[in-house]
Nucleic acid binder design. Structure first.
Lengths: 210, 210
DNA sequence: GCCTACATGTAAATAGTTACATGATTGA
DNA sequence: TCAATCATGTAACTATTTACATGTAGGC
């Protein structure tokens, strides 16, 4: 089980498989959609995407869909049965960073194709990750409050409020999720809103990098 | 002016210079403080930090402060006059990514040592960057709303609300900044809060990566 | 006919982390 | 004395972007 030369970041892999779960697509289109699913306007480069697609194909998780590549030289990829399985494995597996902003965002973006029990686990994991963050933030603020100038204080406060808001948002989602034993969705995406309340406070990969 | 082998990311450089502006410090301590200043709990590794310090020293922006490295083998760095100047250049310079989350956060964290006019420019730059983001988000939502399942919708909505909140927060900060011709702060950190309103909606590098 | 957007790909450069090596100091 | 934490450093590896190279299709 050598580390394979082609192995790319598990996040990109997950995002690509997730998008192809909806519909077959070629690389160029995939890249555009990827920005929406990955953090805020983080556009992935072709230099990452194409090698990743080749790799996924080599492992049998996607195949070139010969029938649909009409006129242009484009290559339409579609998910295989093994690919679907692998996608389920990936969303469900919980490493130490699974609850970080971008990771969480991608997973939630594919909730429509995720089992109810896994969804709940992800929401709860995210929530407790944020609680940890709040604790750290609070104690750091308590320690340094004196020395801080107005701007820094404003910044810290703003950050904390955002996290608090996201926690409240998650609480609502979790509650709705628990109340609805709608269960083991797989292929059929639940078109109804999970939370009927429009309140929706909090924030998601709102702010992120570069 | 060859690209110099030691050149590290301008963001880390800025953060380090900014922290040393407050007080001389050694690498180990610097690393701990860096997490607060860089996005949410993004701890930088020593493998990045120490080479960066060496590089800054080689350029004369920091020096090893021989007098203060008491007992241990630790090396205390302090900012030189040229270092201070370079810091001012860095905070003031506006590249195409200057307004992205992490970049903005670091700059705002050092507002206490930034000229009033530069502060205003940064806040306004950030604000218009967020407006662009909102436009993109809104049109993307308008285009795809039909096809979206409840979860994705909730996620998008949540993200948008967060950005909107940050815009309102910035509006307040900008207004206060304009109202107060307090001006060209340099060394003395303004201990008073810039915005007396506790409202503080919006969010900052709230969510971030890994 | 030509320009723009579509579409795929690769090599080299760049950025950053991990794993390791080393040693000093403090407190139980 | 032993473990934990403090403290610095580097080589190898991983990930990812940039810059380039190449060609197609559709609109003006």
């Amino acid at each position: 089980m050598s580390p394979r030369p082609g192995r790319r970041s598990e996040l990109l892999e997950l995002a690509v498989l997730g998008l192809l779960h909806e519909a077959p697509m070629h690389g160029y289109e995939l890249r555009k959609r990827l920005s929406g699913v990955l953090g805020t306007f983080h556009a992935i480069s072709y230099g990452s995407l194409y090698p990743c697609l080749k790799d996924l194909a080599a492992r049998g998780w996607v195949v070139e869909d010969a029938s649909s590549h009409g006129s242009r030289g484009r290559i339409v990829y579609k998910l295989t049965a093994e690919g679907k399985e692998h996608f389920q494995t990936l969303v469900a597996e919980a490493g130490p960073d699974t609850w970080e902003d971008e990771r969480f965002g991608v997973r939630m973006a594919f909730f429509g194709r995720t089992e109810a029990s896994v969804r709940l686990r992800i929401l709860e994991g995210r929530r407790s990750r944020l609680e940890e963050r709040l604790d750290a933030l609070r104690s750091s603020l308590a320690r340094t409050r004196e020395r801080l100038d107005g701007y820094t204080l404003e910044l810290q406060q703003h950050g904390m409020e955002s996290v608090e808001r996201e926690v409240r948002w998650l609480d609502e989602l979790i509650e709705t999720e628990r109340a609805t034993p709608s269960g083991t969705t797989d292929s059929g995406a639940p078109t109804g809103q999970p939370a009927t309340t429009t309140s929706g406070a909090g924030n998601y990969p709102s702010a992120h990098g570069e």
